[in-house]
Structures are given as structure tokens and as C-alpha cells.
Design a binder for these strands. Structure first.
Lengths: 168, 168
DNA sequence: CTGTAAATGCAAATCATTCGCAGTTGCAGG
DNA sequence: CCTGCAACTGCGAATGATTTGCATTTACAG
């Protein structure tokens, strides 16, 4: 029932346009990344691809993801947990806010902020080539009660973190 | 000539105040980090410590640096080159601008910027707990000529980077 | 001075990622 | 539709940073 000439995923089309040679597994990875709305690490990409077609290896995922990145088709992210995350490259620069409660990643953009950052770089005598901005925050509580609960949770979390370090 | 009761380094004093148990190698590492004005990685810390007293192992440096970090005495940095850097924790938050020409790290601070960032977080419904901001830039050329040279260098650099990926 | 918990050194183990190599495949040119 | 070869893939072994197990040493309270 699956059409032989499957319609290419968004990223596959972009690869095509950029002249990146496509193969079965590259198409698959392109599709997985096109369909992902989050920031999967390589293993997640591998698992999602494997679920569709088990004819793929980690090595190829690593190679392909690297290829796509240097081709500018996807972007690498590093949220400080020791493994690379990827997301489809969109035209805009956006930044990330990581929710310390649940690890969720919220994307945002702000022209004023960007302008100011560029100005700061210029002031230091530099032409800005890249920004890496991540915010870490707790979703603001609506009530004092909620705030209290949250504070206790945070304390517990921090104590735990101190105990077994090396966040996963 | 070295006094037996050596005067404690700044970080050693802070550890003391925080109740971190000190030993010979911890004192040594505290001194090395106190004296470092840059952002050494673990191997550099090890080398600098080893140069003073070879009675120290990498494992201990790793463990101590981890200990100091969780105690809030030093801060871990990650400039995206795959190894952790450390610097003594100062009271202020500051950010880093990495010079793409020579890898030098410039520190800066900007209240306006920080305020704006906090506002952005708030706007998203979050209380800001941490910021990670790194700028990557090329030192701005003073002349058109210099600009041209620089552009060519950049192109060569980029081409090279594309070729052998994995920045060191 | 002594006992014990904590710290250290060493080497082996982990973890994410890359690489070597032999076998497979995509596809330009016939 | 065939051919040939460069490019691609899978596998497992190699890397590089960091952590850990364990036997030994050390700090220091009693």
C-alpha cells in the first residue's frame, strides 16, 4: 500500500536541492528528522529510523547526521548533557529555554535581544558569527502555594543531582 | 624556603569556608585554579598541578574538579570542543565571546542584556535560573584590505573544517 | 596511638562518537 | 539494459574524555 515512489520528506527535498546524494538510509533519516518536532539525539534518531526500517546502523546515522549538518540541512545542538541533539535547520535563528522541571525545550526568538547581542559583540571589537544562547528556568508558579511545592521539589532535585552527579 | 604553613590560595579559603575537606592534592588543585586566569580543561589543570607536585593523578583531578564544582567553588564551561573547562566562580555572571581566529576567550558582562534576557524568560512564563550565552566572532578588521585577507582565511578555515569535521 | 571513614592511584570500564575495511549500491556513460 | 567504480553501508574495533572498582594510603577524632 505504500507507494513505491514515496513522496520525499521536506528535508529530502532540501538535500536534493543542495545536491546531496541520497540513498535509502539517508532518505529514511531525512524523513525521521523532518517528522521530529523535538531535538532528538543520535540514538533517538537511530531508534526512530530503525522502527521504520531495521536496515540501518548507528554508524550510518552518525555519518548521515554529520553530512546533513555540514550541508546546512540540520543543526546540531548541545544542551550540556553530553550528547549532540539535532533539529531541521529553519531559516530563523532561535534560542532555547530548557524547563528545569521536566527537561522540555521551548524555542523562542527575539529581534531586540539579537540586536543587543550583536551590538555587544561589536562593542568588543568583533563581528558576530554565531550565538549560542540557552536559558534554564522553572515555569513561574501562579500561586504562593504552588511556589512552595515547587521550591521543595527543586531542593530535592538539587540534592539528588549533587548526590549522583553526571546528569543523563 | 617555601613556608611549611603555606598561605592558602583564594579557592582553598573558600573551600574551607564551605566546609570542604582539604587534602594535599585538593589544596594543590585549588591553588592551580586560583592562579589560572584562563579556562583550563582537566588535562591542563592536571599538567599545571603535576608541574608543582607530581604526586597527583588525573583521576584525582577529575574527582576534585567535580567536587569543587558541586560545592560551587568553580564553574564548568563548555565551549563546544568536547571537553569541560573550568574557572573559579566569581560572584558575577559573565558571558564569553570566543575569537574564531585564535580561540581566545573574552569575558564580558552587560546588565542591559541580562535584564532583557530575564524579561524574555518571564514573558515565556519562566523564572530564569541560568543563562548560557556564548558569542562566536571574528575580531573586526580595521581596513578593507585586512577584511579581504581575513575573508580568505575564513574561507580556507571553513573549507578545512568541512573536510575534516570534529573541531578540536 | 589507633581505628575508621574518606581520599588517592592505577587500571579497567563507560559513553558518545569515529574509523578501517570488506562487501554493497547508486548511477554516469555506454 | 549492462558495466565500473566511486561512494555508501554495516560491523566491530579504535578513540578520547570521563568515571569507577579496588586495594592502599591518609587524615584525624577519640
Amino acid at each position: 500500500m505504500v507507494p513505491n515512489k514515496h513522496d520525499p520528506s521536506r528535508l529530502e527535498r532540501i538535500c536534493q536541492a543542495k545536491g546531496v546524494k541520497m540513498t535509502g538510509q539517508r532518505r529514511l533519516i531525512a524523513r525521521v528528522l523532518s517528522d521530529s518536532e523535538d531535538h532528538p539525539d543520535v540514538e533517538q534518531v537511530y531508534r526512530r529510523a530503525f522502527a521504520i526500517d531495521s536496515e540501518i546502523s548507528m554508524a550510518t546515522v552518525y555519518r548521515t547526521v554529520r553530512l546533513f549538518e555540514t550541508a546546512g540541512v540540520i543543526e546540531r545542538r548541545d544542551f550540556g548533557d553530553g550528547r549532540a541533539r539535532y533539529e531541521a535547520a529553519r531559516g530563523d535563528h532561535h534560542h532555547h529555554l530548557i524547563d528545569l522541571d521536566n527537561g522540555k525545550v521551548i524555542e523562542f526568538r527575539n529581534a531586540e535581544l539579537e540586536g543587543l547581542i550583536e551590538a555587544v559583540a561589536l562593542e568588543l571589537g568583533y563581528r558576530l558569527e554565531g550565538i549560542r544562547l540557552e536559558l534554564y528556568g522553572m515555569s513561574a508558579p501562579r500561586s504562593a502555594e504552588e511556589a512552595h511545592t515547587r521550591t521543595k521539589q527543586l531542593q530535592a532535585r538539587l540534592a539528588q543531582a549533587v548526590r549522583d552527579r553526571r546528569p543523563r
